[in-house]
Nucleic acid binder design. Structure first.
Lengths: 213, 213
DNA sequence: CAAAAAGGTAAACGCTCGTTTACTACGCAT
DNA sequence: ATGCGTAGTAAACGAGCGTTTACCTTTTTG
């Protein structure tokens, strides 16, 4: 038993990410792997099954990453108090790691593009896209800033996350990927400083309030 | 002669925007219009022709809008000196108008979604996506800030444009569209203040320099 | 008013799609 | 040695694809 099933999944994902699920034929996937389409059906029940295996695998990988980074996975739900006061520096570092992941990790980058192409086809795809890349991370950031008791956490979350999201797209279409990464660093540096300023201001205000009591 | 050709184009666009070009059949387009697919071929040479007519029409509409707003169209090339010092307030207002256009205008919103789905299929689609929605507007903003002689114009452009770009996506997946528009306003308000501060700082610095000479 | 053009239908074309079937060769336990 | 699961091929299946054809109305026009 070779890792054929895995090879099929990765090849299919690469094709789905370029042309979309419907536009990729089972023959095309098999052809790319140097076998006939009949062979694919020894490993997957049907075309849909390949697609859903990709989704399942992303879910697994996401959960694992979330556990490693000690961060709530996918949709930000309730997070443990331990991370309510994540230092600003850690946040910026985490954001940069996330950017590298979604642009440079072969599986994640392809998955992101595939989801981008499927997002309007039905509710579930739209939900997944938002969860992994859109409102999901944005909501998570909002909760995080709220946890830091910052004023206008949603506004700050937009300011923090929007550059990442924009540069995902710019990265995909860029000749010089390096330059885009540099732009992200530039943006994250600015965000870090801004947040640091906000949190120290807040602390000072809190101190003043405590003096009054 | 009714506007049948137009109706075909708009219906096709709506379907392309939901499922992507390949996934939409000629029969599906015709069916949605209550006619048989044979009839479509009286108005368009083939399926591709419909698609390309959509592109051509967007190009026309974009050029027209660019002329109205007195702003270089599509890719920001050389812009007339007259707009090199566009006041900050005008820029924010223009940005809000653009956001409304790409989210609420039926044709533009569908076109944006369609292009989103087609962006990875070949170079031309990728180029168009970047031109209309990605690196294009970003580069335009960069040039604009450079024209204002701001320091780090690219960084400021990211900060300005990224929220718009993110909220396009969030808007698409949101239940409460109104709330997303409010978030955009919030972001634009912040950007306006930030820019105003930057430009007045710059002016003061320029004044100091002039004193020395 | 006749001719022609425009706009539509229904059916067929060749092709490709996803899927199933029948068959083959190999690896490996018992 | 035999029997069985595994991984593959080649061919066929019905369905649907984009496109073309033949034919019919209706509208426009000379």
């Amino acid at each position: 038993m070779g890792g054929t099933k895995e090879r099929i999944l990765l090849t299919a994902l690469r094709l789905f990410a370029a042309d979309g699920y419907e536009a990729v034929s089972v023959s095309a996937i098999a052809g790319q792997l140097g076998m006939t389409k009949g062979a694919l059906y020894k490993h997957y029940r049907n075309k849909r099954d390949i697609f859903e295996s990709i989704l399942a695998r992303m879910e697994r990988e996401d959960a694992q990453r979330a556990a490693e980074y000690g961060v709530p996975e996918g949709t930000a739900e309730q997070m443990p108090d331990a991370y309510r006061h994540t230092p600003v520096d850690d946040m910026a570092a985490f954001a940069r790691a996330q950017f590298r992941y979604w642009t440079q990790d072969e599986f994640a980058a392809s998955f992101r593009r595939m989801l981008t192409l499927e997002q309007y086809r039905n509710d579930e795809m739209g939900r997944l896209y938002q969860q992994y890349l859109g409102a999901g991370p944005l909501g998570y950031m909002t909760d995080l800033f709220e946890g830091l008791a910052l004023p206008r956490p949603r506004k700050e979350a937009v300011r923090f996350y929007a550059p990442m999201f924009l540069l995902y797209s710019v990265y995909d279409g860029a000749e010089d990927k390096e330059a885009v990464t540099a732009m992200l660093d530039e943006a994250m540096e600015a965000a870090r400083e801004h947040l640091k300023r906000l949190t120290t201001e807040k602390t000072e205000n809190d101190d003043k309030k405590e003096e009054k009591t």
